[in-house]
Simulated scan of single mutants.
Amino acid sequence: MVLDEFDLIHRYFSRPTSTTVLGVGDDAALVAPAAGMQLAISADMLVEGRHFFPGADPYSLGWKSLAVNLSDMAAMGAIPRWFTLCISLPSADADWLDGFSRGLFALAEQYGVELIGGDTTAGPLTISIQIIGQVETGRALCRHGAQAGDDIWLSGPTGAAALAVQHRYGNLGLDAEDLVYCTVRLDRPEPRIALGRGLLELATAAIDISDGLVADVGHLAGRSGLAAHLYRATLALPALSDKALALPVFESCLLAGGDDYELCFTASPSCRSRLMSLGEALCLPLARVGTMLVGQGVDVLDDQGNPLSLARAGFNHFA
Rank of each mutant, 00 (worst) to 15 (best):
L3P: 00
L8S: 07
R11E: 12
P16V: 14
T19V: 05
T19D: 07
V21G: 07
A29N: 04
V31F: 06
V31S: 01
P33R: 13
A35F: 03
A35I: 08
M37V: 09
Q38G: 04
D44K: 14
V47F: 04
E48G: 02
H51K: 03
F52N: 04
P54V: 12
P54M: 10
K64C: 04
N69S: 11
S71V: 07
A78L: 08
P80M: 11
P80N: 09
R81Y: 06
C86H: 07
S88M: 06
A92V: 12
D95N: 12
W96N: 08
S101N: 09
A108Q: 07
Q110G: 08
L115E: 03
L115S: 13
G118S: 11
T120V: 15
C142F: 11
C142T: 15
A148N: 13
D150V: 06
W153A: 05
S155Q: 07
P157H: 02
A161W: 04
A162D: 07
G170V: 15
C182H: 09
C182R: 09
D187Y: 06
L195F: 11
R197P: 06
I207V: 15
S210A: 15
D216L: 11
A221I: 00
G222F: 04
R223G: 02
G225H: 04
L226F: 08
A227D: 00
A228H: 02
H229A: 00
S241Q: 04
D242M: 08
A246I: 09
E251D: 13
S252F: 01
C253I: 10
L254D: 01
A256H: 01
G258I: 03
D259M: 11
E262P: 03
T266V: 07
T266F: 00
C271P: 02
S277R: 12
G279D: 02
L286A: 02
A287K: 03
R288M: 12
M292V: 14
M292T: 06
L293R: 03
D299Y: 00
L301R: 01
L301T: 03
L310A: 04
A313R: 14
F318I: 15
F318C: 12
